[in-house]
Amino acid sequence: MPIREQIAFMKLLFPNFQTRWRKNLVTWIGEVQPDALSDSYRVKITYGLQQRPIVSVLKPALQADEHIPHLYRDSSLCLYRPSKGEWTHRRHIATTIVPWTVLWLYYYEIWQATKEWRGGGEHPDQTNVSRQTNFQHIQGL
């Protein structure tokens, strides 16, 4: 899908996000609030035709006493499993990456408050174990 269409969809659904587009790389910065009790988060989405969308949280900074689940080493969010085809260049960022970011932030806050990651998911090196332990309450997803 052309970057132009990604930008048009973002503008339509998340008009408050600021867009910067240079050559083949586009950056959106904007605020989302997962639910009424949540903080508002300023997030940055970077995307190019040659790379997957990268989402990072600008403000407030992610913080925890422990290792935060489902983060890449560069602190960008692990939102989907690449090999499962959950996201491809043919899908709209506004209807996949953004909702997943909001969901991630929601589960991050609940994890901070309860020490329990309720969002399920998989870890690259111990996929089977984490599926059993983290997946219990949303089996079937």
Binding site: L13, F14, P34, D35, L79, Y80, P99, W100, V102, Y106
Partner: peptide
């Protein structure tokens, strides 16, 4: 971006946090 279970134009698609 607020999450909701009421009818809404954007349904959160299935995903696997990885």
């Amino acid at each position: 971006g607020g999450l909701t279970t009421r009818p809404c134009p954007i349904v959160v698609p299935k995903n696997t946090f990885y």
